[in-house]
Design a protein around this nucleic acid. Structure first.
Lengths: 164, 164
DNA sequence: GTGATATGGTACGATTTCGTACTTTCTATA
DNA sequence: TATAGAAAGTACGAAATCGTACCATATCAC
């Protein structure tokens, strides 16, 4: 097989960027007013992996600067969707816990997305999506690990990483 | 084949969102100071599809509000990477043209990304990427068209769409 | 043609994102 | 233990994103 041209890789990431933009806009349309995708993503993360996570760990998981995560958490606290408490095992860090309201909002958002997924299932061959999932997962894992490798240009304080 | 659970679709978009985040960070590390991904994306768009595009058309292509595109273009103008001129066929609109410097910056950025793509080719089975490309392309096309369909929640002034 | 409506773009303010600098706490090494 | 360095979080300011309101121009109905 001939080596693919760089433009081909580029197209893959370009398509991914467009899909991310479209799906994010759709998600945000299903969220309560004042909540945007990063807020929901944090709620979802805390439910899927369990709450009581440190702020810094979530910043790493989402590959955002810790200052950005501080702001995101602050908004979630203002909406009473999470609570922040000190980490008893490390005086520097704080742990983030879901409130009942936070769980409910996440649950409702997923329920409100159901019609969109159903429409997708009607209009798109979902078998192809499932085929692509392992590739996407492995690509994400590769990029995540590669980020920690030597050749990555480290940018300020947003470094380090781990699987989401 | 059993119908996939919504969580499976969700995972696909979640992986895509993470990949977008990681690849965007990498791209921005290769751009000149002061330029971020949206700036490059506009340059790339103008080269791939030809310049002299209307601002509103680019906003639609990227699914961003026209106010966001106005700002992006303003930065590109400040960097002398594009020029904005009136549309002789429509007194309301403006057309965006690349400068030589704009073409050069885009060309250089792609050249600077080459080592990253080569590293990717060494560490990841690129055949799998190429297999996924048609699915991603079709999914993007579907979502783009679906956005214009009835069931989409229209959001403010960022409406309408067309292929990038 | 004239008026009503739609469209392209901008002004403005609110929110988000993020880099830098700093404080506090932990860890490692002597 | 003492102390230097690393790590977690925040304060702050700059830039980006985006919604609302508004102006100028175009299009449509009559």
């Amino acid at each position: 097989m001939p080596k693919p041209a760089p433009a081909t890789y580029f197209e893959v990431f370009n398509e991914i960027a467009i899909i991310e933009q479209l799906s994010r806009t759709l998600l945000e349309a299903r969220l309560p007013d004042g909540l945007i995708a990063p807020h929901f993503t944090v709620l979802n993360h805390l439910i899927r992996l369990g709450d009581g996570r440190a702020l810094i760990d979530m910043a790493r998981a989402f590959q955002v600067p810790k200052t950005s995560m501080t702001h995101t958490i602050k908004v979630l606290v203002a909406h009473e969707l999470v609570e922040v408490r000190p980490n008893p095992e490390d005086g520097r860090s704080k742990l983030v816990w879901l409130t009942d309201k936070g769980r409910a909002v996440r649950h409702q958002a997923i329920a409100d997305l159901a019609p969109d997924f159903e429409r997708l299932a009607r209009g798109f061959d979902t078998a192809r999506l499932l085929e692509a999932l392992p590739v996407l997962r492995d690509l994400r894992i590769y990029l995540d690990e590669d980020r920690n490798s030597a050749e990555w240009p480290q940018s300020g304080t947003s470094n380090a990483a781990s699987a989401r």
